[in-house]
Simulated assay, not measured.
Amino acid sequence: MSLKQLRLVSQVELTRRLEPVKTLKEDELEMYRVVKDRETGEHYLHFAAFHIHVAGGGVEEEYHHLMPLDHDDVIALALGSPLFVYPEHWTIAYLRNGPDGGFVWYDPDGAANEETEAAETEKFLREQLLEFRASGKYGEEEVRRLLESIDQRLPPLGEPE
């Protein structure tokens, strides 16, 4: 099964499945290398950033990201093509490590879309409430119409937990 089909990928699973193909850049601050999934043959660009958390008592921290690569990108990188520098060139969904030792998929486009949608929703709600206040009518019927208008615009609520 492809890692792309998993929501959460454990560090143990990645260590078991991924093998290094070629280190592209490595210094004391960061590393880029191409890795291959032994089970599927898929390739990923592995980016690791290292730094010392001064405010946290000098603890060394590592951040790891794995971006899927298509066949042409693997060949281009192996032949010396410029790196997909993080974060500028990481525009597709990629795995990144989290606080619990696992990796989760992060979609930069999805995050930008969510921010835009949240701003649009905020603007809509503000306009609705300002119009309601300006009308000067606060009866039961006016409140019902306001709430119906808002309900039509907002996505349905998920199941309560």
Score class of each variant (00 low, 15 high):
Thr121Ile: 07
Gly41Ile: 03
Phe132Gln: 11
His64Val: 08
His89Lys: 11
Asp151Lys: 09
Val9Gln: 07
Met67Tyr: 13
Arg145Cys: 03
Lys137Tyr: 13
Val12Tyr: 14
Tyr106Phe: 15
Glu39Pro: 11
Ile150Val: 14
Ser2Pro: 14
Pro82Met: 02
Ala55Ser: 06
Leu77Thr: 07
Asn113Glu: 15
Gly158Ala: 08
Val143Ser: 03
Leu45Cys: 03
Thr91Asn: 09
Met1Trp: 12
Ala76Phe: 06
Val85Thr: 04
Glu161Phe: 00
Ala49Asn: 01
Gly102Leu: 05
Arg7Val: 08
Asp70Tyr: 05
Ser81Gln: 02
Tyr63Gln: 03
Ala134His: 04
Leu29Gln: 09
Pro68Lys: 09
Asp151Phe: 06
Leu125Lys: 05
Gly139Trp: 02
Ala78Ile: 06
Glu120Cys: 10
Glu28Gly: 02
Leu157Phe: 10
Leu14Lys: 11
Ala78Thr: 07
Leu29His: 12
Phe47Val: 00
Asp109Leu: 14
Gly101Cys: 09
Pro108Val: 08
Val21Met: 13
Arg145Asp: 05
Thr15Trp: 03
Arg96Ala: 09
His89Met: 07
Ala55Arg: 14
Lys25Asp: 07
Tyr94Ser: 06
Ser135Asp: 06
Ala112Cys: 09
Ala134Asn: 11
Ala134Trp: 12
Thr116Trp: 12
Trp90Phe: 13
Leu146Tyr: 07
Tyr44Asn: 02
Pro82Arg: 10
Asp109Ala: 15
Lys25Leu: 02
Val21Arg: 12
Val12His: 09
Ala55His: 09
Pro160Ile: 04
Asn113Lys: 15
Leu146Ile: 05
Arg126Thr: 11
Arg17Met: 08
Phe124Ile: 04
Glu39Lys: 02
Leu24Lys: 07
Leu130Gln: 15
Glu140His: 08
Gly102Ala: 09
Ser149Cys: 04
Thr116Cys: 05
Tyr138Ala: 11
Arg38Asp: 01
Glu60His: 06
Met67Glu: 03
Val35Asn: 02
His51Asp: 08
Gln152Glu: 10
Ile92Gly: 13
Ala93Phe: 00
His53Cys: 12
Asp70Leu: 03
Val104Phe: 13
Arg144Leu: 08
Glu140Thr: 14
His51Cys: 00
His43Arg: 07
Val21Leu: 10
Ile150Gly: 01
